[in-house]
Design a protein around this nucleic acid. Structure first.
Lengths: 187, 187
DNA sequence: GGTTGCACTGCACCTAGTTGCATAGCACCC
DNA sequence: GGGTGCTATGCAACTAGGTGCAGTGCAACC
């Protein structure tokens, strides 16, 4: 599930402890991605060992000390790498994480990845529609098993339509309002 | 993921070997549910031990013998139980399996389960729309990080809209063309 | 006659992720 | 004085699922 990268995005937005991350994942990010504190602690440890994050223990009064994790330069590089890397098996959640993290890497590369996925979903949608035409030319009178199968197919069609429309909305918006050039680009 | 029940539905439609199931899951069912042959073999074994399926080894000429799995009365009972059982944590795939298998149990109970989920998705959609109104009152000029976050939220909204519309299509169709009464009901 | 591919089963190992529990101090309520 | 609940970390055990590999026998291709 590439939880590592979701955490990199979240920590890039704001440094935090495992506990804080767990709470963020319950809310904003967790609306479309769930992770228990256990999983987060384990992944954070792995990321620390890999040098993606730096850890600083911060004492607090009245509560246990927390370990604040900050993304290191190595981590930033890894995030940039992952953002630009094509991944045909990525699902909507992964793509949402990539989009959400696009400003920490190359927005244009993320747009291209989304464009590739748009094509794949459009093809699948087309395949579904052909099945619909072939197997259910007149769905009005269906009932029982055939109706159920038809309705499941309709669900697939609706899901793919929604996906494709979303990709179009995203790609249009990114083209209309691209990220401002960074200092690096300006040099 | 309740692979057991997806297999029960598939085997109820037609008895088959592990290999055949694996190929079905690549196609029709696998459009929205994937499973490797390994996982299927393991689950079939478990189901056999639980008495949900009966196994018959069928010799074939020119190819290895296959083990044809047939759903037993215990398995049919389990499927009926699962179909009627409310499950708040069920995702679209699980619900699609329930719908696809509805004719092997109580169609009305499945409709009620779908109706419950419709409500949950409608509530989540509402919550998303409020976030949209509050945090992005005028999205036209957004760019960079804020734009990315807005577009992810738009994805959530579109997904929930699509879900709710699908539930409505299904519930309307089931109400308009309900399953014909079974012999059991007629008694 | 050798390679490739398909049908069919299964073992062994690995990864990701969940659940249950433990610890520990403080705050707040009754 | 005791229960509940929050912040904060972590271990141990379990489940689900994927990957890699292996064997058998036939058919079809070149």
């Amino acid at each position: 599930m590439a939880l590592e990268h979701a955490i990199l995005v979240s920590l890039s937005e704001r440094a935090g402890s495992g506990y804080e991350l767990a709470r963020r994942f319950e809310k904003s990010i967790g609306l479309f991605w769930s992770a228990t504190h256990q999983q987060i602690y384990r992944v954070l440890k792995r990321m620390e060992e890999a040098g993606w994050v730096a850890v600083e223990t911060v004492a607090q009064d009245g509560r246990p000390a927390k370990k604040v994790h900050t993304v290191s330069e190595t981590g930033r590089a890894e995030l940039r790498r992952w953002l630009a890397e094509p991944d045909a098996s990525a699902g909507p959640q992964e793509l949402a994480v990539k989009l959400r993290g696009a400003s920490f890497g190359d927005e244009q590369a993320v747009a291209e990845e989304l464009s590739r996925h748009r094509r794949a979903h459009a093809e699948r949608l087309d395949a579904y529609r052909q099945i619909e035409k072939r197997d259910f030319p007149s769905p009005a009178g269906l009932h029982g098993r055939a109706l159920h199968q038809y309705l499941v197919l309709r669900g697939g069609i609706r899901a793919e339509e929604g996906q494709v429309e979303w990709f179009d909305e995203v790609l249009t918006a990114l083209r209309t309002n691209p990220a401002p050039p960074t200092e690096k680009d300006a040099r």
